[in-house]
Write a protein that binds this DNA or RNA. Structure first.
Length: 599
RNA sequence: GCGCCCAUAGCUCAGCUGGAUAGAGCAUCAGGCUUCGAACCUGAGGGUCGGGCGUUCGAGUCGCUCUGGGCGCACCA
């Protein structure tokens, strides 16, 4: 396809000297494979776009392709066999280390900061957004040739930690120091959740509840954080314990989600030693000003931000802005990145505007490199979720529920399936994660069980089902067909498939449904590129659905193993199945979803 | 009060830098398994793209304005 694109562009450039040649993808494969909208060029040469496209259609000839004027568009449509050859070739003959849609290394480095949960808080459905969007962005960038650094800005520092220390001191350290017994004041939790970490969480929630009526407690929490920053041994000891407890839990969840980071060490606390130097540097630059109550701030009115950035609290303790600034400076020195993405919710847009503005003032190097990728918050029908208030949906409950619902369907439709539990997990995860990607927008999401765990229609399991059906056909085909679609080991985001020769005769793919499927497969590389460009997984998710849907059309209309098929037609169709399976498997994997062979 | 974001079918959402007849899923209705997996497929109904004004050859997309919602507005993150 790239060859045709290049030739088409060259011919257009020759016919229209000086014109800007920007090709598009037509709405459907019926229209063609590549489209040249003539509007701008027509203006430049002083012609009517409809007329220009007709003239170009008559003037340009490309072997194996048809050039057709469709109103103001000039469409290049490949002959059915040329399309099949181009698309299947690109997928089946891609080198194992450079799968279809990937690009060679481009020498650029991008940091993706994502997930970033707070210590002693359990993962909620809200955390899934940052985690999986960030994961998909990291995967897509690496797939497209970037060097990717995956960072987790763990919330292991700050006044919230003071809250935890204060609460522990008040209600646990004497009667329940190891947090191994239930609190008599807390409501009884389900068995699975009765862990020390959960009790820590209960302490946190209780503190915030009581703090409402007793503002002095807020000072108590701040004082504890101050002690922590001043190296108080008791505070440090508890800090380490709570952090270790949380990390073990987080790791379990990341393993379940298939998400990994280059390091979990560079959380907020990591920058503690750099806070002083950061403040000094801000001071030396002359940006730092005294604010109310002895706080130190940086004014940003001159760049259109009314709220100043507070970098040191009145009591001298640091605040998250200080740590984000220190982190950015550290990352510049350590990673020399080209782009740094912050996958953090929309409620922090102002915060990042401030941080980026301060960095621009401090060092012009940062200009244009820092990017906040905000996402809408997950809300409940009755309102905002709040960890502090305890009205939250825990991620594991959602994943477990999804798994159970899938397991019930498996029991009904395919009771003899091997590895039922594993498959149920893959499909449940697929449903939840895919739902999130389909909705990637800045808009908030209202959580309901049936929405998030939907299993019909445009869902992960729908795409996974297409993959499973293909594998089933390939197994029935015998020979080494199934092996050809078998995923090899993944290296980073790349799934290795052994390059496979094309069938010499592709006439069996003339049917419109086969052509439509080829057209959608051809759309995948663009969709993956759009993930990185737009910093969202949505285009890929939607293109995978398009592929799965057109596969279903192909499957129902073009018998693959029917005895009346010629061996050539059968092989051509099987090759298309293999290509589709590879593409689906790789595409889902970029999103953090696995494609089972059976379900 | 100020700032940012959002508004598309009954519901949930797509719609790439303005460009081909505004598309999916769910729900509803009507069909399709003696044939490769029906977790599927085919078809139907359903739209003043929140209202108004403007820019443009052309606006769901850009600008202004109104209405309705979300978020934020220094010592939480």
């Amino acid at each position: 396809m790239d060859d045709f694109r290049r030739t088409f562009e060259q011919q257009l450039a020759a016919a229209l000297p000086g014109a800007e040649i920007a090709l598009e993808r037509p709405r459907s494969g019926e229209l063609g494979d590549l489209a040249f909208p003539c509007f701008r060029a027509a203006k430049q040469v002083g012609k009517n776009p409809v007329q220009l496209s007709q003239e170009l259609a008559a003037a340009i000839h490309i072997e194996g392709a048809l050039l057709m004027a469709a109103g103001p568009y000039l469409n290049l449509k490949l002959a059915p066999e040329a399309r099949a050859k181009a698309v299947l070739g690109a997928i089946l003959q891609a080198p194992a280390e450079r799968p279809y849609g990937s690009r060679p290394a481009n020498g650029k480095k991008v940091i993706v900061e994502y997930s970033s949960p707070n210590i002693a808080k359990l993962f909620t459905i809200g955390h899934l957004r940052s985690t999986m969007i960030g994961h998909a962005l990291a995967q897509a960038h690496q797939f497209l040739g970037y060097t990717v650094v995956r960072l987790n800005h763990l919330g292991d520092w700050g006044t919230q930690f003071g809250t935890l220390l204060a609460a522990y001191t008040r209600w646990a350290q004497d009667e329940n120091p190891d947090l191994d017994a239930d609190f008599d004041w807390a409501e009884v939790a389900p068995e699975r959740r009765r862990t020390p970490l959960f009790r820590l969480f209960q302490l946190y929630v209780r503190f915030h509840a009581e703090e409402e009526n007793d503002p002095a407690m807020r000072d108590e929490a701040r004082a504890w954080f101050k002690r922590l920053e001043n190296n108080d041994p008791r505070a440090r000891e508890l800090w380490k314990r709570f952090r270790d407890l949380s990390l073990a839990e987080f790791q379990r969840i990341y393993d379940r989600l298939g998400v990994r980071f280059d390091t979990l060490e560079e959380g907020e606390a990591f920058y503690e030693a750099q806070l002083g130097p950061t403040l000094k540097r801000l001071e030396a630059s002359g940006l730092l000003v005294e604010g109310d109550r002895g706080a130190r701030i940086i004014h940003l009115e001159d760049v259109g931000i009314a709220t100043p950035c507070l970098v040191q609290k009145g009591d001298g303790a640091s605040i998250y802005a200080t740590r984000d600034l220190a982190a950015a400076l550290y990352r510049k020195a350590t990673y020399h990145f080209d782009r740094c993405l912050y996958v953090v919710g929309t409620d922090q847009v102002l915060h990042f505007q401030q941080i980026f503005a301060v960095l621009d003032k401090l060092d012009p190097w940062f200009k244009g490199r820092m990017l906040h990728t905000p996402f809408g918050m997950v809300k409940l029908p009755e309102g905002k979720m709040s960890t502090r208030k305890g009205n939250v949906i825990f991620l594991e409950d959602v994943l477990d529920e999804a798994r159970e619902r899938v397991a019930a369907i498996i029991q009904e439709k395919n009771p003899d399936l091997q590895d039922k539990a594993d498959v149920a997990e893959m499909l449940g995860m697929g449903a939840v994660v895919f739902f999130d990607a389909m909705n990637d927008r800045v808009k908030p999401i209202t959580f309901t069980w049936d929405r998030v765990i939907a299993l019909d229609g445009d869902t992960g399991p729908y795409v996974q089902y297409a993959h499973a059906r293909i594998m089933s056909v390939l197994r029935k085909a015998g020979g080494d067909w199934a092996a050809k679609a078998q995923a090899g080991a993944a290296k980073g985001p790349f799934i290795a498939f052994v390059p496979t020769p094309l069938p010499s005769d592709l006439e069996g793919l003339q049917a419109p449904e086969a052509q439509a499927l080829l057209f959608e497969l051809a759309g995948l590389p663009g969709a993956i590129a759009a993930v990185a460009d737009g910093c969202m997984a949505t285009p890929l998710a939607r293109q995978l659905v398009a592929v799965a849907r057109s596969f279903s059309g192909f499957y129902t209309n073009c018998p693959i193993l029917a005895p009346e098929n010629t061996p050539e037609a059968r092989d051509a169709r099987l090759a298309l199945c293999v290509a589709t399976a590879r593409a689906l498997c790789q595409g889902l994997f970029l999103m953090g979803i696995q494609a089972p062979d059976e379900m």
